[in-house]
């Protein structure tokens, strides 16, 4: 069993390689598509440049070589995680991006936990009280949060909870001037985290609620439920011990699929709340026309999606041993 799982993981990693390669090529093509190359950018920074200087710059960056050669060199650099230099931040892109990964992960993990946890709970409540006011209310809530743009939810929450009520800070990840350490700092970050995490999780909450409701309803019609009922088990016991466990499977799959869109959502939420993660970095690089940096973030987020999908697949085989590893 263990070796089967290991070969499964290994094969999945091998399958991810061509996808990564394709994403790298797309990245490169976009870089070529952009008006102006690195030499233009540098020359622009310097204010003026002679054609000789431009030619020299192009030669230094290898921009005078054929596109195919440039592509191979680019792939070689990306393979060792070298995404070039961010001219705005005067730092290597890799360093910058890894620096900002932490806050984004905090935000995403919190969001997934809230969305899957509360979403499943609401879904179960809706399914148990099918066609009652509770079910309708939860369904309407899901529909509305499905249709609401994230940035607007964020702004409205700021308006209500920060401006009017003053309960939570409007932006940032911590009160930097306070120099908190230890648990104080954790508490401070958690305090700042509430609104962004709530904003980002609303949409997914709705998604998991609907999914869980449908999944519960489907499972309730299964033969094993009839058997359990025939054994004389109570409804509550059947719902929570039998149906719930099986109904969770599609929710787990969906959590993996949604990570990709979650990253997109975090760009918006981080921008609205000034959360110092990858999304905000992407927003900043957008305005500075720092394409190197934007490409680095794009690539890293694609890698993140691949990794999470792999983890979800492994988790899935553990939750449901019937799934063939082959």
């Amino acid at each position: 069993m263990l070796t089967a799982r290991l070969t499964f993981i290994l094969r999945r990693i091998l399958q991810a390689i061509p996808i990564l390669l394709a994403i790298m090529i797309i990245n490169f093509l976009l870089l070529k598509l952009a008006p102006g190359d690195a030499a233009d950018v540098l020359a622009g920074e310097a204010g003026s440049a002679t054609p000789e200087y431009m030619a020299e710059l192009r030669e230094r960056f290898g921009l005078d070589q054929p596109v195919a050669v440039q592509l191979v060199k680019y792939l070689g650099r990306v393979a060792v995680l070298d995404f070039g230099f961010s001219f705005r931040h005067e730092m290597p892109v890799t360093e910058l991006v890894l620096d900002r990964l932490g806050p984004t992960l905090i935000l995403m993990v919190t969001t997934i936990t809230i969305a899957v946890g509360v979403g499943s709970l609401l879904g179960v409540l809706a399914a148990v009280g099918l066609n009652t006011w509770r079910d309708s209310f939860i369904s309407v809530l899901a529909l509305v949060s499905y249709a609401t743009p994230l940035f607007w939810v964020g702004l409205m929450l700021i308006l209500l909870f920060s401006v009017r009520l003053g309960w939570f800070p409007t932006s940032g990840m911590e009160t930097i001037s306070a120099f908190h350490t230890g648990w104080d700092r954790v508490w401070d970050i958690a305090h700042h985290l509430v609104l962004p995490a709530l904003t980002l999780s609303l949409f997914y909450l709705a998604l998991y609620t609907r999914l869980m409701r449908a999944s519960m309803l489907e499972q309730q019609g299964m033969d094993y439920v009839t058997t359990a009922r025939a054994k004389g088990l109570t409804d509550r016991w059947i719902t929570f011990r039998h149906v719930l466990r099986n109904a969770l499977l599609p929710v787990v799959t969906m959590a993996g699929v949604q990570v990709s869109s979650l990253i997109g959502g975090s760009v918006i939420v981080e921008t609205v709340f000034g959360w110092p993660g990858l999304g905000q970095l992407a927003f900043e690089s957008l305005f500075a026309r720092d394409l190197n940096l934007l490409m680095g973030i794009f690539f890293l987020s694609a890698v993140l999606v691949l990794v999470v999908n792999l983890v979800v697949d492994i988790l899935y085989t553990m939750l449901d041993p019937r799934i063939e590893l082959s």
């Binding site: 990709s260 869109s261 997109g264 760009v267 973030i297 999606v305 999908n309």
Partner: peptide, 10 residues
């Protein structure tokens, strides 16, 4: 696989 919103931004 590509995160769609970031791809659109790019």
């Amino acid at each position: 696989t590509i995160p769609s919103f970031i791809f659109a931004i790019l």
